[in-house]
Write a protein that binds this DNA or RNA. Structure first.
Length: 298
DNA sequence: ATTTGGTGTTGTG
DNA sequence: CACAACACCAAAT
């Protein structure tokens, strides 16, 4: 059997969430399953590893990820990853036809996007005020940044000590903008993004991209990948008319400033391996598992 | 199985 | 302007 997890997939220890917190338990469970999925570990074994009663873990896990630990193990096997890739060529083709005229419906979250005008890009956000705030979410803490025209950034952190890095990472992209912490303003964004029941067509989520031409084209392509499907770096390169630019696509995907909303986690290596994730491979797996549990709900 | 060589775009000095 | 870095990939050991 092939291995979904090559050595490059094993990441160094990530900063810990507060020990004993629910998220910490979930994270450790996911980590454990990620390392041992070949043995199809039983619920008891996983529960034992994280130090919880099996029934408690079962309930907790389902609440956070929307599916059972067993289902999660299945969701991260290579076969399933390849399943996501099935017909990936047509995935992008068909949605291309449907979605593109006008600010239509893109992606399951119903996103409309606009890129910064060239002038605004050149000025790197001068004169724009961006509000930000951290909010709990199923994958740790989410840093939400909003500009007047719409959502401008989404990043992840794993606890207090992790926040400054995430914030700096995001602020770098708008060097000339002014920033203000305002959790009240960003909370509605966070609630909506992570609550699938709120994903409706009538009131699309507005996002604002700042980036180079190439990057924005890549991100636009990502928005066309439907929930529960995946594509590959090289496939996106083909779509952009630069079949040899898979690697360039990789770096552009990695620079996606609005992670999760722009579903960069749905891009896999051609062999079905996960390859990488700016906010940690464990989180990429968690999001894919979460979405697997969502199939049918949306 | 592992290595190697070819890639496009971006950020840096 | 050159050069290194990168969430890749296919072909050759």
């Amino acid at each position: 059997m092939n291995l979904m997890i090559d050595t490059a997939d094993i990441e160094p220890a990530t900063p810990r969430a507060p020990a004993g917190s629910d998220y910490d338990a979930i994270r450790r469970a996911i980590e454990f399953m990620t390392e041992t999925w070949r043995d199809q570990p039983s619920l008891e074994r996983i529960a034992d590893h994280v130090g919880l009663e099996p029934t408690r873990l079962q309930k907790l896990f389902r609440r956070w990820c929307g599916l059972s630990p067993k289902g999660f193990v299945q969701a991260i096997t290579l076969d399933t990853a390849r399943d996501l890739l099935r017909d990936s060529a047509s995935v992008l083709d068909t949605t291309y036809e449907v979605g593109l005229s006008g600010p239509g419906r893109l992606h399951d979250l119903f996103v409309t996007h606009e890129a910064m005008s060239p002038g605004e890009y050149a000025s790197r956000g001068a004169g724009v005020e961006i509000v930000w705030g951290f909010h709990p979410c199923p994958f740790g803490e989410a840093l939400v940044m909003a500009a007047p025209r719409g959502l401008a950034g989404l990043a992840f952190a794993d606890g207090d000590d992790d926040r400054p890095a995430a914030l700096a990472d995001m602020m770098k992209r708008w060097p000339a903008a002014t920033f203000r912490e305002d959790m009240q303003a960003t909370a509605p964004y966070a609630a909506r993004i992570f609550t699938p029941e709120m994903w409706t067509e009538d009131n699309p989520l507005r996002v604002v991209f700042i980036g180079t031409d190439f990057e924005i084209r890549v991100w636009e392509t990502l928005l066309r990948i439907p929930l529960g499907r995946a594509t590959t770096y090289s496939d996106i390169a083909d779509r952009l008319g630069k079949p040899k630019a898979a690697r360039a696509v990789g770096t552009a995907v990695g620079r996606n400033p609005i992670s999760f909303v722009v579903p960069c986690h749905r891009v896999l290596g051609k062999s079905g391996g996960l390859c990488g994730y700016h906010w940690g491979l464990t989180r990429k797996r968690a999001i894919l598992g979460w979405e697997a549990g969502l199939a049918g709900v949306v």
